[in-house]
């Protein structure tokens, strides 16, 4: 302690201090983890675009699939995706909003709500392929819906339900408590508070969550593969009971064919799929941006 006189040398940076060197090297090594992810993403996009760019044309979405890769398109898959995912969103988003309202406004922090919340977390953990199997057993055969659009839509709706519900819960939680209490203090019922205070404020963020749920549903192939089978469908899905295919499933079909022309076709279709997802995510980001601006303005 006080016995030894402290010298300047004791406090200056030492050149051979291993830890000091490590202190500079370690973050560089750690950042490789970030760049690994980014590199894979970049390589993937680069490979897909260079392989598929030449095959990219309008025929890709206006033509039916064909054994001849030069003529093949995915018209039926694009329509199938629109109908099936659109329908699933119509089922999933209202259910999610309603669940979120119940969980936050009615059930509160009660034990019962914990159980419900836990169930939702568990549903999110079920592998998507299992949804397909259950869809096949319960909807296709059990309820006799057949391998149809409606069976696919229900399956996708339940699959995305937990994700969208969680964002809706978050959305409601962003509504300031004092606004709600203010309304309750005036004698409003919960229904009135939900209608006049919560929904107007939380809806944009809920819809953002809905869009993200939709983009998730669009990318799902496994459950639809189980429900629909790997079909060569050359007709548009015209009714709820029509057989159908979706873009990722059509892709699976093409990717599995060894002919190089099908590889290019697949890459071109992947570009289309990624562009759709990009558009949806941009819409979600734009919506969130608008929402923040509006909230800042008030």
């Amino acid at each position: 302690m006080g016995d030894q006189v402290l010298r300047y040398e004791d406090l200056v940076k030492r050149r051979n201090d291993l830890k000091r060197t490590l202190d500079r090297v370690v973050p560089v090594v750690l950042s490789l983890g970030v760049f690994f992810g980014v590199t894979v993403l970049a390589a993937l996009l680069f490979d897909v675009v260079t392989t598929g760019y030449d095959r990219l044309n309008l025929n890709l979405i206006t033509e039916y699939p064909s054994a001849n890769p030069a003529e093949a398109g995915m018209r039926s898959a694009v329509l199938g995706t629109i109908v099936t995912v659109g329908l699933s969103a119509l089922i999933c988003i209202p259910l999610s909003i309603a669940s979120a309202i119940y969980l936050v406004e009615y059930a509160g922090g009660r034990r019962w709500a914990e159980v419900l919340r836990y169930n939702i977390a568990n549903l999110a953990g079920v592998p998507s392929v299992v949804f397909g199997i259950v869809g096949l057993g319960f909807l296709v055969y059990g309820l006799g819906l057949g391998r149809s659009v409606i069976a696919g839509a229900f399956t996708l709706a339940i699959l995305t339900l937990p994700y969208v519900t969680v964002t809706c819960v978050e959305a409601i939680k962003t509504v300031p408590e004092d606004l709600k209490f203010g309304a309750y203090a005036l004698g409003a019922t919960r229904l009135q508070v939900v209608k006049s205070i919560i929904l107007p404020r939380a809806l944009p963020m809920m819809l953002t969550g809905g869009i993200l749920g939709i983009s998730r549903a669009i990318g799902e192939a496994a459950p639809i593969l189980i429900i629909s089978g790997l079909l060569f469908i050359r007709e548009d899905p015209v009714s709820l009971l029509s057989r159908f295919t979706v873009i990722p499933l059509q892709l699976f079909n093409w990717i599995s064919r060894p002919l190089p022309a099908f590889q290019e076709l697949s890459a071109a279709a992947i570009i289309v799929l990624l562009l759709i997802l990009l558009a949806l995510n941009s819409a979600a980001i734009y919506l969130r941006y608008r929402l923040y601006r509006r909230l800042e303005a008030t």
């Binding site: 006189v5 402290l6 300047y8 004791d10 406090l11 200056v12 940076k13 030492r14 000091r20």
Partner: peptide
């Protein structure tokens, strides 16, 4: 100045300062 040594001088390592 800590024991007469300027702890903000360029060569001083803050880590050694903090351990004292």
């Amino acid at each position: 100045l800590f024991n007469g040594i300027d702890i903000y001088s360029r060569d001083v390592d803050p880590v050694y300062i903090r351990s004292r």
